[in-house]
Design a protein around this nucleic acid. Sequence first.
DNA 1: CACCAGGGTGGTT
DNA 2: AACCACCATGGT
Length: 218
Amino acid sequence: MTSIDRLFRSWLRYYGPQGWWPADDPFEVMVGALLVQRTSWSNAAQAIARLKARRILSSECLAGIAEVELQSIVEPAGFYRVKAHRLTRLAGFVENEGGVGTLGALPSGALRQKLLSVDGIGPETADAILLYAFERPAVVVDAYLRRILVRMHERWQAVTDDQIRREVSTRLDSADVLNEFHALAVAHGKSVCRSEPSCGNCCIRASCVTGLATAATR
DNA sequence: CACCAGGGTGGTT
DNA sequence: AACCACCATGGT
């Protein structure tokens, strides 16, 4: 039985604090969460910088801007047609809900449900927004975490995302810890080889990341 | 050249 | 329920 708790401390000791999420306010986190889908952060950050340069990175502005214009602005992030449309819908949602302040007053369960009703916000993005925009103790289950867990123990192969969320949250409860946990999972996921399990050493032994092994298995 | 990046949606079997 | 194509730019 591997301890998620020990894995987290190993990552933190090896990689250090990741400083997520790089944003000035909750709405910027929401926008970034949509822009970064299947996209490198550097590309998403370019789109965010262009929004900021035009001073339209707010729900009020984005709800009113022409979608074709928004497309040209967020173009560096890729998938710019769907993303412009989703940003427009997101802004309308936030305005309709009375702003991020009103949303922030909702309990996490209700807020998650509302977020999932927005076009382009699925489970992973909803939990990322809960965690990084609203500082709720949400577990973000992404492809990196799934792969890492499967490589550590075969039992994770058949475990659903919902089960992963609950199992992780029993070990890591605070928003601050879960904040680092997801960011570190991404950092570690990028470091280890991405080839199939054939490697057999990924994530828990030294052949992928020197020094992590002894920390993770201690 | 192929492959990937801090996913989600809609359609098909 | 499991799979699939699609969205599209920028970096290795």
